[in-house]
Amino acid sequence: TSEVNPQMLQDLQAAGFDEDMVIQALQKTNNRSIEAAIEFISKM
């Protein structure tokens, strides 16, 4: 599995997102940004 940015993971979990969804979103967006991860999650 590709690495996820631990700070982004922590921030998104703090915002109430599920850890598994956050990890998948960060991997799919290559840790580009929190906004990109949220957009990915919203389309899941």
Rank of each mutant, 00 (worst) to 15 (best):
T1L: 06
T1M: 11
S2F: 11
S2N: 12
E3H: 09
E3R: 08
E3S: 05
E3W: 10
E3G: 10
V4C: 06
V4A: 08
N5K: 02
N5A: 00
N5V: 01
P6Q: 15
P6M: 13
P6T: 14
Q7I: 07
Q7C: 05
Q7A: 08
Q7K: 14
M8W: 08
M8A: 03
M8R: 02
L9H: 05
L9T: 09
Q10P: 00
Q10F: 07
Q10G: 07
Q10N: 11
Q10E: 11
D11K: 15
D11P: 00
D11R: 10
D11G: 03
L12A: 02
L12D: 04
Q13C: 14
Q13L: 15
A14Y: 05
A15C: 06
A15E: 06
G16A: 01
G16V: 00
G16K: 00
G16R: 00
D18Q: 11
D18V: 02
D18N: 08
E19W: 01
E19P: 11
E19T: 14
E19S: 12
D20T: 12
M21C: 10
V22F: 01
I23Y: 08
I23N: 11
I23Q: 09
I23E: 10
I23L: 08
Q24L: 14
Q24F: 14
A25V: 01
A25P: 04
A25D: 03
L26F: 03
L26K: 04
Q27P: 02
Q27R: 12
K28W: 04
K28G: 11
K28P: 01
T29N: 04
T29G: 03
T29D: 00
T29M: 00
T29S: 04
N30F: 00
N30V: 00
N30H: 08
N30S: 11
N31A: 04
N31T: 02
N31Y: 07
N31R: 00
R32L: 09
R32M: 11
R32S: 14
S33V: 00
S33F: 02
I34Q: 11
I34A: 12
E35G: 09
A36Y: 02
A36C: 09
A36N: 05
A36R: 04
A37G: 05
A37W: 00
A37S: 04
A37P: 04
A37V: 04
E39M: 06
E39R: 07
F40N: 07
F40P: 09
F40L: 09
I41H: 06
I41N: 04
S42M: 11
M44Q: 15
M44C: 12
